[in-house]
Amino acid sequence: MRHSEQSGIKEEIMDTIQQELLSQVAGLHEVPEGAYNIRANGELAGRNTTANIDIITKEDRSGIDIRIRPGTKSESVHIPVVLSKSGLKESVYNDFFVGEDSDVTIVAGCGIHNSGSAASAHSGIHRFFVEKNAKVRYVEKHYGSGDGSGERIMNPTTEIHLAEGAVLEMETVQIKGIDSTVRTTSAEVAQGASLVIREKIMTHGKQRAETDFKVDMAGADSSVNLISRSVAKEHSTQIFRSRIVGNASCHGHSECDAIIMDEASVSAIPELTANDIDANLIHEAAIGKIAGEQLIKLMTLGLTEKEAEEQIVNGFLK
């Protein structure tokens, strides 16, 4: 009953452009299962809470608190944001409190459609407080559309606090349409906790994407793994910065693997700091064009050079 009511609200407020954005960033074609909060053009367009997951509107500033009770298992929270009004600029503060021993999936995402000439911008500031032994899968997608000259700007900030034994796996994808992005992620990892971040980025035109990771491993047996795969086409620019600090016996690994095409530019700037003799830190970075032999192999299978290039790029970012 409750679901059909909610879906009614959504359809009234959201138009087809917004629904398209929603399906791009959250894979949502209808109202999601479980808890959700949908924000459209700066306003609440739908919310559902469950017995274990509460969503509360912040009073001091724009944003929500998501409270997940200890021991919550196999539940999900969707918090997509869509912007279709040209020139809208907003900053949203969302805090996630994930209780001990819970195991949840959080899907955030932002879609901007800009067909006007003024820049549209969304800055999402997400903070995660993941309690002891809790496990979070966090999926974030960014997408832009519309043919206006106004820029589509997204500056997500993610701040992660992992308590003892907590695990957070983050997947962040930005494949299309965002003109300018600065993605800042910082994390503090306690004893036995583990953080994995997988990032996929494709830029084209004159787009610019900057990634900035800073991870402090504070506790023994903590670990972090940052994996970035990106493709920079045409005149776009990408900068990948990662700073990993090991303050205890820990494992840190970061990897930046980029395909550069046309007139693009890619920088990878790693920084590793070990403050403990048992801190084990590795950084790998590879930037290069598509290997000629890969193109040739696919052409001997009957693809044109252009088709071969597409297959290689799609596979790389899959």
Partner: peptide, 29 residues
């Protein structure tokens, strides 16, 4: 490409590796 379409196939001495492309993808291509 044209020769491939005319029916020339070539198994390389040193096969090429691809990140992200699966055996099924390649056999389908």
């Amino acid at each position: 490409t044209e020769r491939a379409k005319l029916g020339i196939g070539f198994a390389f001495q040193q096969p090429v590796r691809f990140k992200g492309i699966t055996v099924k993808d390649l056999l389908s291509i």
